[in-house]
């Protein structure tokens, strides 16, 4: 009895995840997949997706590593509030994030950088939603490091850059890889913040998720083909993470 009480809802949970994915694969037009994936719209969207997702990852790395450092090492009184603030994009509906970006950096924004409806804007939207993933992973990694190794390196004549490069960074590598993969995947899949802040301009801000959304209304087979590509990417991501960093 008890086994059934646990087993049935667990099986339904699995079905909840597996069934839609199976349906997607079942409806995918495998014979014309290559055609759909290499259409000019798809190629453009793929290019924009790669550009914006890796751009967002680069922004996250440059800004997120110092931020993670501050969160992990600082003893300043405001650090708990700061961590809470960093988490907001994770729980905020992305469309609200996009609107917030619009009012901050759009044409009539508080800081009128005129980034709305540009590729740079799509990068910024991706960075906004992906940053917490990288910062959290890096902060956890930094907390596991013993700062005394840096002291030991200093006694051996290593300056700040060498200590970071040869002592901190290699020990931080697992967290850095895991955090980067999560952040990149989050930026790759971003929809709401991108369409709200950067729009849906083919060749400029139309990423794969946006292209899927548009295609669903006109060319279902194309939508299915692009969805399958994104699903494949996600699975590859999990395999890479599991194999190297998650099963330690």
């Amino acid at each position: 009895m008890r086994r059934l009480a646990v087993g049935i809802p667990a099986a339904i949970a699995v079905a909840l995840i597996a069934l839609p994915l199976a349906a997607l694969l079942a409806r995918t037009p495998w014979s014309t997949l290559g055609e759909h994936v290499t259409s000019s719209t798809a190629r453009q969207a793929l290019f924009i997706s790669l550009q914006t997702s890796f751009g967002a990852l680069a922004v996250c790395l440059v800004l997120g590593l110092p931020l993670a450092w501050v969160l992990a090492r600082s003893t300043a009184p405001g650090r708990h509030l700061l961590r809470a603030l960093v988490l907001v994009p994770m729980v905020l509906p992305p469309v609200v994030g996009g609107a917030a970006l619009l009012f901050a950096f759009g044409r009539n924004g508080v800081i009128p950088l005129r980034l709305s409806f540009t590729t740079a804007g799509a990068v910024l939207a991706g960075a906004f939603v992906a940053l917490p993933f990288l910062v959290l992973a890096l902060e956890a990694g930094l907390r596991q490091l013993d700062p005394r190794y840096e002291d030991a390196a200093a006694v051996l004549g290593a300056g700040p850059w060498s200590r970071f490069r040869h002592i901190t960074l290699p020990q931080l590598a697992p967290a850095l890889v895991a955090g980067s993969v999560l952040a990149w995947a989050r930026a790759l899949g971003e929809f709401g913040a991108t369409i709200t802040f950067a729009g849906n301009l083919p060749g400029e801000t139309q990423t794969l998720p946006l292209a899927v959304y548009v295609a669903l209304q006109s060319d279902r087979d194309a939508a299915l083909a692009l969805s399958t590509v994104l699903l494949g990417t996600a699975v590859a991501m999990i395999v890479a993470l599991r194999g190297r960093w998650l099963t330690r």
Binding site: D146, R148, Y149, A153, V155, L156, A158, H166, I167
Partner: peptide
């Protein structure tokens, strides 16, 4: 100066040889 810490603090991601060479490289 050379300091041998109570917990030794050998760098965990380097071999014994690289640990010793580390200070020499920085010299």
């Amino acid at each position: 100066v050379g300091l041998v810490f109570q917990d030794r603090l050998l760098f965990p991601h380097m071999t014994a040889l690289d640990n010793v060479a580390f200070g020499l490289r920085h010299a």
